[in-house]
Design a protein around this nucleic acid. Sequence first.
DNA 1: AACCAGGCATGGC
DNA 2: GCCATGCATGGT
Length: 292
Amino acid sequence: MLIYLSDDKIDTGHQYIDFKATLCDSGQAFRWRVLPCGTIRGVALGRVVSIRQEGNAAWLENITMEEFLAQWEDYFGIKDDYTILYQAADGDPFFKQCLESGNGLRVLRQNFWEVLVSFIISSCNNIGRISRIIEKLCMGFGERIAGDAYDFPLPERLACHRKEHISAVSGCGYRDEYILEAANLMLAGDFNDLDDLPYSQQIHRLKKCRGIGEKVASCTALFGLHNLSAFPVDIWMSRILSQVYSGGLDIEKFGNLAGVAQQYMFYYALKHKDIFRHNNLSARPTQKLDGG
DNA sequence: AACCAGGCATGGC
DNA sequence: GCCATGCATGGT
Protein backbone atom coordinates (compact mmCIF):
# COMPACT_ATOMS: atom_id res chain seq x y z
CA MET A 1 0.00 0.00 0.00
CA LEU A 2 0.99 3.66 -0.37
CA ILE A 3 1.32 5.81 2.72
CA TYR A 4 1.65 9.54 2.19
CA LEU A 5 3.53 11.38 4.92
CA SER A 6 3.85 15.10 5.53
CA ASP A 7 7.06 15.33 3.52
CA ASP A 8 7.23 12.15 1.45
CA LYS A 9 5.52 8.87 0.65
CA ILE A 10 6.38 5.24 1.25
CA ASP A 11 5.37 2.01 -0.47
CA THR A 12 4.86 -0.77 2.07
CA GLY A 13 4.49 -3.40 -0.66
CA HIS A 14 2.08 -6.19 0.21
CA GLN A 15 1.99 -5.16 3.89
CA TYR A 16 -1.46 -3.66 4.41
CA ILE A 17 -3.19 -1.98 7.33
CA ASP A 18 -6.80 -0.95 7.79
CA PHE A 19 -6.36 2.08 10.05
CA LYS A 20 -10.00 2.40 11.10
CA ALA A 21 -10.33 -1.28 12.02
CA THR A 22 -7.00 -1.27 13.81
CA LEU A 23 -7.19 2.04 15.65
CA CYS A 24 -10.89 2.64 16.21
CA ASP A 25 -12.86 -0.59 16.06
CA SER A 26 -10.76 -3.39 17.52
CA GLY A 27 -10.69 -2.62 21.25
CA GLN A 28 -6.91 -2.55 21.57
CA ALA A 29 -6.47 1.25 21.52
CA PHE A 30 -8.90 3.69 23.09
CA ARG A 31 -7.76 7.13 22.00
CA TRP A 32 -8.60 7.14 18.28
CA ARG A 33 -11.89 8.43 16.83
CA VAL A 34 -13.51 8.67 13.44
CA LEU A 35 -14.56 12.28 12.92
CA PRO A 36 -17.82 13.08 11.09
CA CYS A 37 -15.78 13.96 7.99
CA GLY A 38 -14.29 10.47 7.97
CA THR A 39 -10.84 11.48 9.16
CA ILE A 40 -9.33 9.36 11.91
CA ARG A 41 -7.79 11.38 14.70
CA GLY A 42 -6.02 10.38 17.87
CA VAL A 43 -3.18 10.84 20.31
CA ALA A 44 -0.23 8.47 20.35
CA LEU A 45 3.49 8.78 20.99
CA GLY A 46 2.80 12.18 22.55
CA ARG A 47 1.35 13.66 19.40
CA VAL A 48 -1.95 14.44 17.69
CA VAL A 49 -2.24 12.67 14.36
CA SER A 50 -4.87 12.70 11.62
CA ILE A 51 -5.26 9.88 9.12
CA ARG A 52 -7.32 9.47 5.98
CA GLN A 53 -7.51 6.19 4.10
CA GLU A 54 -9.02 5.16 0.81
CA GLY A 55 -8.35 1.54 0.02
CA ASN A 56 -4.66 1.03 -0.61
CA ALA A 57 -3.74 4.65 0.00
CA ALA A 58 -3.49 6.52 3.28
CA TRP A 59 -2.48 10.05 4.24
CA LEU A 60 -0.85 10.65 7.61
CA GLU A 61 -0.82 14.27 8.72
CA ASN A 62 1.89 15.58 11.03
CA ILE A 63 4.33 12.69 10.55
CA THR A 64 7.53 12.98 8.53
CA MET A 65 9.27 10.12 6.80
CA GLU A 66 12.04 10.18 9.38
CA GLU A 67 9.55 9.99 12.24
CA PHE A 68 7.56 7.29 10.52
CA LEU A 69 10.58 5.05 10.11
CA ALA A 70 11.84 5.80 13.62
CA GLN A 71 8.61 5.25 15.56
CA TRP A 72 5.29 5.01 13.75
CA GLU A 73 6.05 2.05 11.56
CA ASP A 74 6.60 0.07 14.75
CA TYR A 75 3.57 1.58 16.45
CA PHE A 76 1.29 0.46 13.62
CA GLY A 77 2.92 -2.97 13.48
CA ILE A 78 3.14 -2.65 9.72
CA LYS A 79 6.22 -4.81 9.27
CA ASP A 80 4.86 -7.82 11.16
CA ASP A 81 4.34 -10.81 8.87
CA TYR A 82 1.00 -12.56 9.43
CA THR A 83 1.55 -15.30 6.84
CA ILE A 84 1.31 -18.11 9.38
CA LEU A 85 -2.24 -17.05 10.24
CA TYR A 86 -3.39 -17.69 6.69
CA GLN A 87 -1.81 -21.12 6.83
CA ALA A 88 -3.56 -21.78 10.15
CA ALA A 89 -6.89 -20.81 8.58
CA ASP A 90 -6.68 -23.80 6.27
CA GLY A 91 -9.19 -26.29 7.62
CA ASP A 92 -10.64 -23.77 10.07
CA PRO A 93 -13.57 -22.08 8.30
CA PHE A 94 -14.49 -19.88 11.25
CA PHE A 95 -11.02 -18.44 11.63
CA LYS A 96 -10.74 -18.08 7.88
CA GLN A 97 -13.90 -15.98 8.01
CA CYS A 98 -12.40 -13.87 10.81
CA LEU A 99 -9.26 -13.25 8.77
CA GLU A 100 -11.18 -12.23 5.65
CA SER A 101 -13.63 -10.09 7.56
CA GLY A 102 -10.83 -8.32 9.43
CA ASN A 103 -8.44 -7.86 6.53
CA GLY A 104 -5.91 -5.17 7.42
CA LEU A 105 -6.40 -5.49 11.17
CA ARG A 106 -3.08 -5.29 13.00
CA VAL A 107 -1.82 -5.47 16.57
CA LEU A 108 -0.25 -2.17 17.56
CA ARG A 109 2.91 -1.56 19.57
CA GLN A 110 1.56 0.83 22.18
CA ASN A 111 3.03 2.47 25.22
CA PHE A 112 3.28 -0.03 28.07
CA TRP A 113 2.03 2.26 30.83
CA GLU A 114 -0.96 3.48 28.85
CA VAL A 115 -1.95 -0.09 27.97
CA LEU A 116 -1.55 -1.21 31.57
CA VAL A 117 -3.93 1.43 32.92
CA SER A 118 -6.33 1.11 29.99
CA PHE A 119 -6.87 -2.58 30.62
CA ILE A 120 -7.17 -2.15 34.37
CA ILE A 121 -10.05 0.15 33.47
CA SER A 122 -11.41 -2.40 30.98
CA SER A 123 -12.42 -4.90 33.63
CA CYS A 124 -16.20 -5.38 33.77
CA ASN A 125 -16.63 -2.41 31.46
CA ASN A 126 -17.56 -1.73 27.85
CA ILE A 127 -15.32 -0.25 25.18
CA GLY A 128 -17.26 2.99 24.86
CA ARG A 129 -17.03 3.75 28.54
CA ILE A 130 -13.40 2.62 28.74
CA SER A 131 -12.63 5.25 26.10
CA ARG A 132 -14.55 7.94 27.96
CA ILE A 133 -12.86 7.21 31.27
CA ILE A 134 -9.42 7.29 29.65
CA GLU A 135 -10.25 10.56 27.92
CA LYS A 136 -11.21 12.10 31.27
CA LEU A 137 -8.02 10.78 32.85
CA CYS A 138 -6.04 12.48 30.09
CA MET A 139 -8.00 15.74 30.34
CA GLY A 140 -7.68 15.80 34.10
CA PHE A 141 -4.11 14.68 34.63
CA GLY A 142 -2.27 14.62 31.30
CA GLU A 143 -0.10 17.25 29.64
CA ARG A 144 -1.84 19.38 27.05
CA ILE A 145 -0.40 18.72 23.61
CA ALA A 146 -2.41 20.99 21.35
CA GLY A 147 -5.89 22.49 21.41
CA ASP A 148 -8.13 20.13 23.37
CA ALA A 149 -5.76 17.18 23.00
CA TYR A 150 -4.04 15.79 26.07
CA ASP A 151 -1.38 13.16 26.45
CA PHE A 152 -1.87 10.11 28.62
CA PRO A 153 -0.89 11.05 32.20
CA LEU A 154 2.48 9.93 33.54
CA PRO A 155 2.36 7.67 36.61
CA GLU A 156 3.66 10.43 38.89
CA ARG A 157 0.80 12.68 37.85
CA LEU A 158 -1.68 10.08 39.08
CA ALA A 159 0.19 8.75 42.10
CA CYS A 160 0.08 12.11 43.88
CA HIS A 161 -3.71 12.11 44.21
CA ARG A 162 -6.12 10.30 46.50
CA LYS A 163 -8.20 7.55 44.93
CA GLU A 164 -11.41 9.52 45.50
CA HIS A 165 -10.08 12.25 43.25
CA ILE A 166 -9.02 9.83 40.52
CA SER A 167 -12.50 8.33 40.59
CA ALA A 168 -14.31 11.69 40.68
CA VAL A 169 -12.35 13.07 37.73
CA SER A 170 -12.47 9.98 35.52
CA GLY A 171 -15.54 8.05 36.64
CA CYS A 172 -13.46 4.89 36.89
CA GLY A 173 -15.30 3.69 40.00
CA TYR A 174 -13.79 0.90 42.07
CA ARG A 175 -10.77 0.70 39.76
CA ASP A 176 -9.37 3.91 41.30
CA GLU A 177 -7.19 2.08 43.82
CA TYR A 178 -5.95 -0.35 41.19
CA ILE A 179 -4.82 2.53 38.99
CA LEU A 180 -3.00 4.10 41.93
CA GLU A 181 -1.29 0.85 42.85
CA ALA A 182 -0.18 0.39 39.24
CA ALA A 183 1.22 3.93 39.23
CA ASN A 184 3.17 3.31 42.42
CA LEU A 185 4.56 -0.02 41.20
CA MET A 186 5.50 1.66 37.94
CA LEU A 187 7.36 4.41 39.79
CA ALA A 188 9.05 1.85 42.03
CA GLY A 189 10.43 0.11 38.95
CA ASP A 190 8.53 -3.14 39.38
CA PHE A 191 7.71 -3.20 35.67
CA ASN A 192 11.16 -2.34 34.37
CA ASP A 193 12.67 -4.69 31.80
CA LEU A 194 9.52 -6.76 31.47
CA ASP A 195 10.17 -7.27 27.76
CA ASP A 196 13.31 -9.25 28.55
CA LEU A 197 11.38 -11.84 30.56
CA PRO A 198 9.62 -14.97 29.30
CA TYR A 199 5.84 -14.76 29.04
CA SER A 200 5.06 -16.60 32.28
CA GLN A 201 7.34 -14.22 34.20
CA GLN A 202 5.74 -11.18 32.59
CA ILE A 203 2.32 -12.39 33.70
CA HIS A 204 3.55 -13.19 37.18
CA ARG A 205 5.04 -9.71 37.65
CA LEU A 206 1.97 -7.96 36.29
CA LYS A 207 -0.40 -9.94 38.51
CA LYS A 208 1.33 -8.65 41.63
CA CYS A 209 -0.68 -5.48 41.10
CA ARG A 210 -4.22 -5.60 42.49
CA GLY A 211 -6.76 -5.27 39.73
CA ILE A 212 -4.60 -7.21 37.31
CA GLY A 213 -5.58 -10.83 36.78
CA GLU A 214 -4.89 -13.30 34.00
CA LYS A 215 -6.88 -11.48 31.33
CA VAL A 216 -5.65 -7.93 31.97
CA ALA A 217 -2.09 -9.22 32.28
CA SER A 218 -2.26 -11.05 28.96
CA CYS A 219 -3.74 -7.98 27.24
CA THR A 220 -0.91 -5.89 28.66
CA ALA A 221 1.64 -8.41 27.40
CA LEU A 222 0.03 -8.51 23.96
CA PHE A 223 -0.62 -4.81 23.38
CA GLY A 224 1.89 -3.17 25.72
CA LEU A 225 4.86 -5.49 25.48
CA HIS A 226 4.08 -6.63 21.94
CA ASN A 227 4.26 -10.24 22.98
CA LEU A 228 2.20 -11.52 20.07
CA SER A 229 1.93 -14.99 21.57
CA ALA A 230 -0.19 -13.75 24.48
CA PHE A 231 -3.75 -15.04 24.10
CA PRO A 232 -6.25 -13.05 26.20
CA VAL A 233 -9.56 -14.79 26.86
CA ASP A 234 -12.28 -12.28 27.65
CA ILE A 235 -16.02 -12.90 27.68
CA TRP A 236 -16.21 -12.75 23.86
CA MET A 237 -13.32 -15.13 23.28
CA SER A 238 -14.79 -17.46 25.87
CA ARG A 239 -18.07 -17.43 23.93
CA ILE A 240 -16.20 -18.22 20.71
CA LEU A 241 -14.23 -21.01 22.35
CA SER A 242 -17.37 -22.66 23.69
CA GLN A 243 -19.78 -21.95 20.83
CA VAL A 244 -17.48 -22.40 17.83
CA TYR A 245 -14.69 -24.67 19.03
CA SER A 246 -16.49 -26.52 21.82
CA GLY A 247 -13.56 -25.65 24.04
CA GLY A 248 -11.12 -27.43 21.72
CA LEU A 249 -9.03 -24.83 19.88
CA ASP A 250 -5.32 -25.66 19.65
CA ILE A 251 -3.56 -22.29 19.49
CA GLU A 252 -0.24 -23.93 18.67
CA LYS A 253 -1.15 -23.66 15.01
CA PHE A 254 -0.87 -19.88 15.23
CA GLY A 255 2.82 -20.16 16.13
CA ASN A 256 3.98 -17.05 17.99
CA LEU A 257 1.05 -15.04 16.62
CA ALA A 258 -1.72 -16.51 18.80
CA GLY A 259 -2.46 -13.05 20.17
CA VAL A 260 -2.97 -11.67 16.67
CA ALA A 261 -5.28 -14.58 15.88
CA GLN A 262 -7.17 -13.79 19.07
CA GLN A 263 -7.51 -10.18 17.95
CA TYR A 264 -9.07 -11.20 14.62
CA MET A 265 -11.58 -13.43 16.40
CA PHE A 266 -12.38 -10.79 19.00
CA TYR A 267 -12.89 -8.19 16.28
CA TYR A 268 -15.20 -10.58 14.43
CA ALA A 269 -17.24 -11.22 17.58
CA LEU A 270 -17.63 -7.48 18.15
CA LYS A 271 -18.86 -7.02 14.60
CA HIS A 272 -21.40 -9.83 15.02
CA LYS A 273 -22.45 -9.42 18.63
CA ASP A 274 -25.93 -10.75 17.90
CA ILE A 275 -24.48 -14.14 16.96
CA PHE A 276 -22.43 -14.62 20.09
CA ARG A 277 -24.21 -12.69 22.82
CA HIS A 278 -26.74 -15.34 23.78
CA ASN A 279 -26.47 -19.04 24.57
CA ASN A 280 -23.34 -18.42 26.51
CA LEU A 281 -22.24 -21.54 28.32
CA SER A 282 -19.18 -20.50 30.25
CA ALA A 283 -19.60 -16.92 31.39
CA ARG A 284 -21.62 -15.83 34.37
CA PRO A 285 -25.36 -15.66 33.64
CA THR A 286 -25.85 -12.03 34.51
CA GLN A 287 -25.12 -9.49 37.14
CA LYS A 288 -26.58 -9.19 40.57
CA LEU A 289 -30.07 -10.60 40.89
CA ASP A 290 -30.82 -8.75 44.11
CA GLY A 291 -31.53 -11.35 46.71
CA GLY A 292 -33.29 -8.82 49.00
C1' DA B 1 -36.00 0.02 33.86
C1' DA B 2 -33.39 -3.89 33.74
C1' DC B 3 -29.34 -5.59 31.50
C1' DC B 4 -24.73 -5.55 30.19
C1' DA B 5 -19.76 -4.51 29.80
C1' DG B 6 -12.23 -7.04 26.64
C1' DG B 7 -12.69 -9.09 35.27
C1' DC B 8 -10.98 -9.16 39.66
C1' DA B 9 -10.71 -9.84 44.80
C1' DT B 10 -12.37 -12.26 48.36
C1' DG B 11 -14.19 -15.89 51.08
C1' DG B 12 -16.15 -20.54 51.47
C1' DC B 13 -15.55 -25.24 50.59
C1' DG C 1 -8.00 -26.06 43.29
C1' DC C 2 -13.16 -24.53 41.99
C1' DC C 3 -17.45 -21.73 42.66
C1' DA C 4 -20.33 -17.82 44.19
C1' DT C 5 -20.73 -13.07 45.10
C1' DG C 6 -19.87 -7.95 45.45
C1' DC C 7 -18.05 -4.29 43.04
C1' DA C 8 -18.91 1.58 40.55
C1' DT C 9 -20.53 3.43 36.54
C1' DG C 10 -23.30 4.64 32.64
C1' DG C 11 -25.06 3.50 27.78
C1' DT C 12 -28.82 1.19 25.51
